[in-house]
């Protein structure tokens, strides 16, 4: 039985400034701007190009790439807890192949394939078997890192391979590889979501899955693909991390990266219930959280306290998300 109470209320456009929505959308950017200003004034050598590019941005880029994949998954109304473990798994599999003398041209794509396969596994559990995303991706969250340990036998072994060194230390167009990769991937994602039907389908599935199904969108396929892309990006980041460490390290590679990525998507103002996607704001979210940590630590505040500050910001972001009117 439907009563008047459940009839949709007519929502009229608000003409006055809607502060919760403004803060939700641009709050992370504003905080980032404040942090930058603070650092310009109070932090020595902050504006130095080497610091910006090769310290701040290079640190943030891998997390930002993973966060873009996470934002895609969250846009469908899901979540992917496994990306950190997938970063470890793809890096370790690649490392082991390289140590065994497999040529890099084979070993590196295998790392990405591992990520894609992990994504396919997650996506299949979620869309075909209807398992809750948090539970489905918990499988690889634990098993993925475990598998990485098994693959490397738990040892940390140095990988001496020019291409791995290049991934970690190389420069393209004056940019560290990770930063360059982030820019290319961002452009690619924005391009695909803008110019192909994929972006609209993604948002339709996340915003109203039943409506999307009724207009003929293959909702299961769309959801699966979001996880596959997220897995593939995590696989690539596994290679970048391998380059950064120059060694196999199943324990620490990509550790907590899924949490940083989710936090960034949340502070970027993305509705965790799905239906919204903003690559630009997601990257700003990563940069903001990273710079916040670095700033606090650089100014003598213990890392533990800095983490509490990050927690408070995430709570504030989620509170604002609940208050703002386009979060439904």
């Amino acid at each position: 039985m439907t009563d008047l109470a459940t009839r949709p209320a007519e929502v009229s456009a608000l003409r006055r400034i809607d502060w919760p929505t403004m803060i939700r959308r641009y709050g992370a950017a504003a905080v980032l701007a404040l942090l930058v200003i603070f650092n310009i004034i109070f932090t020595e050598n902050f504006l130095d190009l080497r610091n910006i590019l090769f310290v701040q941005l290079r640190q943030a880029a891998p997390t930002a790439i993973v966060a873009l994949g996470m934002a895609l998954v969250i846009a469908t109304g899901g979540i992917d807890l496994s990306v950190g473990a997938v970063v470890a798994l793809s890096g370790q599999v690649t490392a082991v192949f390289l140590l065994d003398g497999v040529p890099p041209l084979v070993a590196l794509p295998i790392g990405i394939l591992v990520g894609l396969a992990a994504g396919l596994f997650n996506g299949t559990l979620v869309s075909r078997f209807g398992i809750q995303p948090m539970i489905a991706t918990l499988v690889l969250f634990t098993a993925g890192r475990g598998l990485a340990q098994v693959v490397t036998g738990g040892r940390i072994q140095t990988v001496n391979e020019p291409i791995v060194e290049f991934l970690g230390l190389g420069v393209i167009a004056g940019l560290p590889i990770s930063v360059f990769s982030l820019i290319v991937i961002t452009i690619a994602i924005i391009g695909v979501t803008r110019f192909t039907p994929a972006g609209t389908k993604l948002l339709a599935v996340g915003g109203n899955e039943r409506a999307a199904g009724l207009v003929g969108i293959r909702t299961k396929w769309v959801k699966t693909m979001a996880y596959v892309v997220a897995g593939g990006l995590a696989g690539y980041v596994g290679l970048l991390e391998l380059g950064r460490i120059q060694a196999s390290d199943a324990t620490n590679a990509g550790l907590n990266m899924e949490l940083d990525a989710i936090a960034a998507v949340a502070v970027a103002g993305t509705t965790l219930a799905g239906g919204t996607f903003s690559p630009g704001r997601t990257i700003i979210g990563v940069l903001m959280l990273r710079l916040l940590q670095n700033t606090l630590v650089a100014h003598g505040i213990p890392r533990e306290v800095a983490q509490i500050a990050q927690g408070l910001i995430i709570v504030a972001a989620i509170y604002l998300l609940r208050r703002s009117r386009d979060a439904r």
Binding site: P8, T200, L203, A204, G207, N208, R210, A211, A212, L214, T271, G275, T276, D326, R328
Partner: peptide, 11 residues
């Protein structure tokens, strides 16, 4: 059911 099966609210 316009709301549950019709509109995609954010779009």
């Amino acid at each position: 059911d316009r709301r549950a099966e019709g509109i995609v609210p954010h779009l």
